[in-house]
Simulated scan of single mutants.
Amino acid sequence: DLAAVTQAAQAVGGSPLSLGSVTRDDLPVPALADAAFAAPQGGVTAPVRSPFGWHVLRVVGITPGAAAPFEEVRDRLREEIATERAADLAFERANRVEDAIAGGATLEEAARRYGMAIATLRLDARGNDADGAPAPMPVPVAGRPETVRAIFQAELGRAPRLQELRQADAFIAVELRAVVPPALRPFETVEEDVRLAFLTDQRRRFQEERAAALMAAMRGGQTLQAAAEAANLPTDRVGPFGRRPEPAAPGTTAMPQELLPILFGARVGEPAMAPTRSGFAVAQLLEVVPADPAAEAELLATVRRNAQAQAAEDLEAQYAAALRNRAAPRVNQTLMQQVVP
């Protein structure tokens, strides 16, 4: 009885597995395929040994083989054949290019002979040219990172070798002709960038000094409003708001996101300061409004449901992790890909 066999197998670490509907070619071991396809519907095979251990199979159902009309599979067959042929042609051409280079042909000669795109590049380790723009490469976009790595791993004077771009389904060959040491660019080529960077840095430093002066005044006992008026700076009262405030209406002041974690950890009257994209933001916490769960009953119920669901997921994950640690299973990914459709 298969139930008794299953129970005995589980007692020594075995486990039942449903393969679903499979063809003979879907089974990775010929002995398993022979046993399964020789058994009648509802039949149980004798124990079959494979490189993965012992197996007993039960045939739940048999689906008779049938030939699909050619019209139904014409497009799929054409695509499969074209894909396989394209891969074969790519490898054939790659081998010919390799042979040509090994026979003394230059990379340019091999490229012209076999219709390969070729480009001479001068780029940095980020793939940019001398102007800081992405260097044009005759490779798919997905293959750019691999191409840049290949260029910077190449050795000066070594003959080029074809290599496959795994992320782009393509081949490249790299011939390194020169290594340019890092060097400072002439000042006249970067003068405008230097001036802009200097002004930006000075402006931000000035903003930081004014913000720090406000913080010092508030720590000395002044309110933010009084310290800002003395420094001829505008202030605005914002709030009340939650940890995730709604977008501010047009014409109103929005609470900088950078200040939120600081304010929700501050005490009433305590100042806060944070850098932002445009400068520095300074605030003073004036009041803490306690949450009223009764006023947001629906929201509270949603939060409670979410918390319960999250707790259940955490418990399930911890339980599954504990089972894995105790059982210590080993999964053969290759076999799984062959068995599971």
Rank of each mutant, 00 (worst) to 15 (best):
L259R: 00
Q163F: 11
A230M: 08
E298D: 11
V12N: 03
E296W: 10
A249W: 06
D34L: 10
V22E: 00
Q153P: 13
L184H: 12
M255T: 12
T147V: 14
V190I: 11
E84P: 05
G104W: 05
E164W: 10
A36I: 09
A274N: 01
E84G: 13
G279L: 04
P186K: 00
Q202C: 14
P234D: 05
L299Y: 12
R122P: 06
M273P: 04
A291L: 11
P69A: 07
L123S: 05
Q10M: 05
A311Q: 03
A86N: 02
R219K: 13
M215E: 07
F264P: 00
L259D: 00
L263W: 03
P240T: 13
Q318V: 12
T189N: 07
R24P: 06
E80P: 01
R158I: 14
L123C: 09
A248C: 08
L57D: 00
G220I: 10
A150S: 03
D292H: 06
F198W: 11
T63Q: 07
F206W: 09
M273Y: 08
V59L: 04
G220N: 04
Q284G: 08
T23C: 07
A211E: 01
A254D: 05
P40C: 10
P271G: 08
A227C: 09
R195S: 15
M273Q: 03
A272Y: 05
T63N: 08
L259T: 04
Q318Y: 12
P261H: 01
M137F: 10
A226V: 12
A66F: 08
E298V: 15
P293D: 10
E296L: 13
A35Q: 00
E208I: 14
A230H: 07
A227M: 06
P51K: 02
S278Y: 11
L19K: 00
Q308F: 13
E72A: 15
R126L: 15
A133R: 01
A170M: 04
P145G: 06
N232H: 14
S278Q: 11
V22M: 01
E209I: 12
G104E: 09
S278H: 10
Q153H: 15
R210W: 07
R149K: 09
Q284W: 09
N306I: 15
E79F: 12
Q284P: 06
V73F: 11
T83K: 02
L335P: 01
T253N: 03
D26H: 06
G13A: 02
L27W: 03
N306Q: 11
M215D: 05
V139P: 00
A82L: 12
G265P: 02
R78E: 15
A170W: 05
A178G: 09
I118M: 06
R76P: 03
A168L: 06
F241Q: 00
L165S: 02
A322T: 09
E108T: 15
G269F: 04
A82E: 04
A228R: 00
T252H: 02
A82I: 13
T223K: 01
T235G: 03
Q153V: 12
R305L: 14
E229R: 08
M255H: 03
T252S: 06
P293V: 15
P136A: 13
V339I: 12
I62P: 02
Q308W: 13
D75Q: 08
P160E: 04
E191M: 14
S278A: 13
A150I: 09
A307W: 13
E79A: 10
